[in-house]
Computed example of a mutant assay.
Amino acid sequence: MPRHNERKYPIVTAFQRPFNAVMRRLPTQTLLETTGRTSGLPRRTPLGGRRVGDSFWLVSEFGERSQYVRNIKADPRVRVRLRGRWHHGVAHLLPDDDPIARLRGLPRVNSVGVRAMGAGLLTVRVDLTD
């Protein structure tokens, strides 16, 4: 990872922690719930993405460095809250997918933020089971 990208991570995560704490409480915010790989507790992350059929697509702005991606690697069973309703699913990390091209099909405001603040982007697909 280039040095300037390495500096982005602590700056962006310091900003996101308080912001995400507020966003998690909004009833219409899309959330991804993973199981903490160490604690075993539910971890909820506000994010942007789009449902396409029986799948939910998103791009992780820090790829495998993101905590929720690390949790997915340990246990791919997740839940996604869409429009206030929870859906169970199985997450798949797609390193061979083009995350920049994928962002073009996802909500614009979130995609701009992910491209501007992210480094090491990674596509994630959640196959919804209900």
Rank of each mutant, 00 (worst) to 15 (best):
V59Q: 13
G84L: 04
R83F: 03
R102H: 06
T123I: 02
R83Q: 14
S60P: 10
T129L: 08
H92G: 04
R50V: 11
P99C: 10
H88L: 09
F56N: 13
Q67N: 13
V109P: 00
A116L: 08
A116Q: 06
R50P: 10
V114E: 02
V90H: 11
R77P: 06
G105W: 01
L106N: 09
R65T: 03
Q67E: 14
L121I: 04
D97C: 08
V78I: 14
V80A: 07
L103Y: 12
L106R: 07
R79F: 07
V52Q: 12
R81Y: 03
Q67L: 00
W86V: 04
G49M: 01
G63D: 14
W86C: 07
G89T: 01
Y68V: 04
E61F: 00
R81G: 00
S55E: 15
G118Q: 09
Y68K: 08
R50H: 08
H92P: 06
E61V: 04
V69D: 07
L128W: 07
R81L: 03
W57C: 11
V80G: 12
S111I: 02
A74I: 01
R83I: 01
G120Q: 02
M117P: 01
R65D: 10
S60K: 12
D130G: 12
G53A: 06
G84E: 03
P99G: 12
G113N: 08
W86T: 06
D96Q: 13
V52P: 00
R85A: 14
L82E: 11
V52R: 12
T129N: 01
F62K: 05
V69I: 13
H88P: 07
G89S: 05
R85K: 15
E64Q: 12
V114C: 01
R102S: 11
V126D: 08
H87I: 02
G113Q: 01
H88M: 11
A74W: 00
W86K: 11
H87A: 03
Q67P: 02
Q67R: 10
T129I: 00
R125Y: 09
G49A: 06
R108N: 08
H88F: 02
V90T: 15
L94A: 13
R102Y: 00
D98Y: 10
L94F: 01
V69H: 00
E64A: 04
R79W: 13
L128F: 06
G89F: 00
R65L: 08
V80D: 14
G113L: 04
D127Y: 04
G89C: 04
G113C: 02
S55P: 02
G49L: 05
P99W: 08
T123G: 00
D98F: 11
D127T: 11
L103P: 15
R85Q: 14
S66F: 03
R79A: 12
L103E: 15
H87S: 08
R50Y: 08
F56T: 04
L121K: 05
V69T: 03
V78E: 05
R65H: 13
L106E: 10
A119L: 08
R70P: 03
V59M: 08
R83S: 09
R104G: 09
L122C: 06
V90F: 07
G118L: 12
S111H: 07
L103I: 09
R108E: 15
R115T: 07
D75W: 03
N71P: 11
P76G: 03
D130W: 06
R70E: 15
R115K: 13
V52N: 12
K73G: 14
L106G: 06
L58T: 15
R50D: 06
R83N: 07
D127G: 14
N110F: 03
V80M: 08
S111D: 09
D97E: 13
E61C: 01
